[in-house]
Amino acid sequence: MRMGSTVLGALAFAALAAIAPLLPPWLISLATIAFANALVVLGLIILWRTGLVPFGQALFYAIGAYAVALIGRYTPIRDVFFVVFVGAVAAGIVAYLIGFLLARYREIFFAMLSLAMSMILYGILVKTETLGSTDGFHVEAGSFLGWRPQGGTRNLAIFWLVLAYCAIAAWLVAYYFRSVAGSLTHPIRDNEIRVEFLGVSVDRLIHLKLVVSGVLAGIGGALAALAVQHVDPAMSYWTTSGGFVFVTILAGAGSVAAAFVGSLLFELVRSIAVTLVPGEWQMILGTALLLTILFLPEGLGSLVSRLRQRWRRGTAP
């Protein structure tokens, strides 16, 4: 079963990478952003399972993105693996630092404090003229271990890069979900005292989850910056954070795969809605969210488990 889902996941990523050259460029661009954002959603799921909803996860997304942009601006380094690494580390350090405060809070206080942190960064970015203020600034094109693809090839290369990070992250997060740390979700929601008296510090564990989710968001932001070649303060704005929460509700916290499918679906629906009804696309997304909460409260991922259950019942003697 476990081996099964690992192999299935690896096959899915490999198949996507293989068919990418055949897909239309608009779809590649859309999927690139969708999967970069799926990494943020994966981090959100980690916290969500423990009962924590960060309304300011865009903070780490923007840190990852601006780290990449700043390296391009002030250094000659262009290697994508290096700049994404720096973006991840920068987001991780910020998550570690604010974690000392955030990890002590739960529920709405956690959500609001996380939101507050992201709005502070937004304020700083908007006020900083050298970083382009509200306009943001251009991100230098990356090189892949010396290779500098151009045009359509470059877009493909970035997509493959995103897929590679997603595949590794999906595998690691799936491993984490099966670990004791990853299983300390309901127990923390149910009874922190019992967890403490089993020998585990709940605050430190939440701190850890926060850093992991921050690193994932940082990687997502770094990849998004490379893909669109532009950063601006909106990446840290609360509507960006809200989008990640939206996708998490849509996908559900039940599985790793749901983050990717949910994120892709979200970008598709949004792009179709924007094309069809430019003025009212938010209404369409809102309706989609409402329907999800009403009919699939555990998200799209629960469709799969429901079908699986039905199939099992159907084949039972």
Partner: peptide
């Protein structure tokens, strides 16, 4: 099960992350 599993991994955060529940 969670009580037993925690007992195996509780010495460090790394232990908690690397010890499987099941």
């Amino acid at each position: 099960r969670i009580a037993s599993a925690i007992a195996r991994g509780r010495d460090s955060m790394l232990g908690l992350m690397s010890t499987p529940l099941d």
